[in-house]
Every structure is written in C-alpha cells, then in structure tokens.
Nucleic acid binder design. Structure first.
Length: 332
DNA sequence: AAATCTTTCAACCGCCGGAAT
DNA sequence: CATTCCGGCGGTTGAAAGATT
C-alpha cells in the first residue's frame, strides 16, 4: 500500500496509514454519532488518533459520497477551467466537482494536468501561453498544429470536445504570436531560441514565419469566424487591418471555456478567465464603430438543462480583481 | 532478475480565520 | 478587546508502485 509507514509520535498517538480496523471503527462511530467535535471523537470511537487525522481520513477517503477512480475528460476540463479562475483554491474547485475531494484534485493537478498544460504550451499558473524557452522546444509541432486551424474555423462546431480542441489550438496560436514578438523585439532571446531549436530544424525562415502568421491572423479576424463560434462565447473583432510587424495587435478570439490572453490594440495582455459551461457569460462582440462591447443573447447553451448565467451572476464568481475589471468594461 | 529512477497519492504539517470564552 | 480552541485549507512529504535501464 502507498503512503507513509505506521509510526507513533511522542505522545503515543498513532500516525501513518489507516488500517481496515481503524477505518471500520471510525465509520461506525460517525454513522452513529455524526462527525461533530472531532477532538473528542477518537477517544469515544476507540481510536488512538488525533481528531484532525480522523477528520482527514473521513473527508478524503471514507465519506460515502466520494467518487473514486479515473477523472473523466469533462472533469479534467472543468478542473482546468476552474483553476484558471480560482487558482490553487482546491476546496473551491472541489465544490464544483461532485464527489471529488480537494486533496484528490490537488494531486491530480500536480501529477497530470500541470504537465499536460505545459505540453500544450500553456503556463499552468497563468493559463496564458508559455514564454519560457522550454516552451519553444516543440516549435515545429506547434506550427504543424497551427496549419490545421483554418479548417476548424470554417466548419461549425458540434460538440464540447471540438470546442476544447479549438480552444487549445487558439492557445497554441497565441503562443506562436508571443514567439514572434520575442523574435522581432529581443535579439538576445532570439539567439537563445535559435540555438535551442538547432540549425536546420526550423521549418520557416523569419520572413516566411511572418507571412504565415499574418496570413493566419487575417483569416482569424473575419466576421465569419466570430459568427461561427459556438454560443456563450465572448468574441472580439480586430478594429483594424493587420500590417506586417503588427502581429501583437491582432485580437484573438476568446472562448469562455479556455483562457486566452488578448493583446488588444497593442496593449498588455489581459487574461480572460476561463469558465465552466454553466458559468459562461452571454455572447459579446466588440464594435469598432462604437468602441464598446455589444452584449448579445446566448445563441445556444452547450450543456442541456444548464441555466443561462448573466454577467452579474458570473462576476460574483470571480475573486480576481483583474478579471472583474476586464468583464466590468464589457458590461459597461 | 536486480538495481535504479520516476510517479503516484495518502497523510502530515503549519498556518489562518472564525467562534467561543 | 485579548486569548484560546478548533476546523479548514494549501503545501509538502515520503513510501509504495510502476517504469526503465
């Protein structure tokens, strides 16, 4: 069995893994008397354990409503979305996932999801694109992925999984944009990046890369693009035509389900908080004429029986001040 | 088959905040 | 108010299991 080996501390209280017999005593006692006053519980239940240890064992393992086993794709995505809004507030995240404990989610995040996001080129802390040099190591693969994006933009989306895939692609595209910025603005890092990539391994020369990204950005900016995004998306249209070298001014589409940085009008990145489906705000579009965001009705809701959430409801879910002001601007 | 390295996850530790005194 | 107690939380640990050499 995994875990620490049994031992006793100075006061003679037992520590370490619980035996089936101890579990039985604890469950029996709690079923009969509830789990209030944990300090007194161990004595009453005939256990040589600290009350704190009893509580932990009950809440993380013995509670009958605990869901065990592998995390589903949906749970995984929900954790990523919630983490981008709540950060390392594991108990708050657990509150949104039926039957999962904070400890389990924390472990799952640290052992699986962190790595997964890093591999996708996403910083697990900020949920924005990675900008460290390690993130550039799979550069050729990311470019290949980006090449498939146009088909995703043209065809309508019909499932949650497609939406997830699309959002991941967008995150990667944004990473490419960041890379380009680094290449064009910081010669020192450019040299480091080139050596990291290795001579000859780069699929494009710099000017080809510029053409490629500019072309992509123009495709992504069209009205058709924003109209074809699934419901409950917050969409933003670029107010100006892209020029070569102006890639940082491209306004990326932002999905409610995923967290993308938006470089708007050349300003500093603004992180858009990610949400689970029933927490998404209604569709909003940026209007270049009015220089403001138009709030629109939800076109559809990807989750059946999920109530539409208003901006106000949604904002109350967020602790993050930057997120508040960002969405506050949209509402205003 | 054995040794070594890596991953997993149950459990502990210490801090914090709210309730009780 | 000040202090103590206690539950809850996030970070960390370390043995077992699994993977690799």
């Amino acid at each position: 069995m995994m875990g620490r080996s049994p031992c006793c501390d100075d006061s003679g209280m037992k520590k370490g893994p619980w035996t089936p017999e101890e579990d039985r005593k604890l469950v029996e006692y709690i079923q009969r008397h509830g789990h209030g006053k944990l300090e007194a519980l161990p004595k009453l239940a005939g256990l040589n354990r600290y009350g704190k240890s009893c509580r932990l064992r009950w809440t993380n393992y013995l509670r009958p409503d605990i869901k065990r086993g592998k995390f589903s794709e949906e749970e995984e995505q929900a954790i990523i979305n919630l983490h981008s809004v709540l950060g390392n507030k594991w108990s708050a995240i657990a509150g949104h996932l039926c039957g999962r404990t904070d400890n389990e989610i924390k472990n799952f995040w640290n052992t699986h999801l962190r790595k997964k996001l890093l591999q996708r080129g996403i910083d697990p802390e900020t949920h924005g694109p990675r900008t460290d040099l390690q993130a550039f190591a799979n550069w050729p693969q990311l470019l290949a992925t980006a090449a498939n994006l146009s088909s995703l933009l043209i065809h309508p989306f019909d499932s949650v999984l497609r939406l997830q895939a699309e959002a991941t692609h967008l995150a990667k595209i944004h990473l490419l944009q960041n890379i380009f910025q680094v290449l064009s603005t910081n010669p020192a890092q450019n040299a480091g990046l080139s050596s990291l990539l290795g001579a000859g391994s780069m699929p494009f020369q710099d000017h080809q890369l510029l053409d490629y990204l500019t072309n992509f950005s123009c495709q992504a900016d069209g009205q058709a693009y924003t109209d074809q995004l699934p419901g409950n998306y917050a969409c933003f249209e670029s107010p100006q035509t892209l020029q070569n070298g102006d890639l940082h001014q491209h306004v990326a589409a932002s999905g409610g389900r995923h967290n993308h940085s938006i470089d708007q009008f050349g300003s500093a990145s603004t992180a858009v908080p990610a949400l689970s489906f029933n927490e998404m705000p209604p569709l909003a579009l940026y209007s270049p004429e009015k220089s403001s965001f138009d709030q629109r009705e939800c076109k559809s809701n990807p989750v059946e029986n999920s109530a539409t959430t208003t901006f106000e409801d949604w904002n109350t879910l967020l602790d993050d001040e930057a997120s508040h002001s960002f969405w506050g601007n949209i509402i205003d």
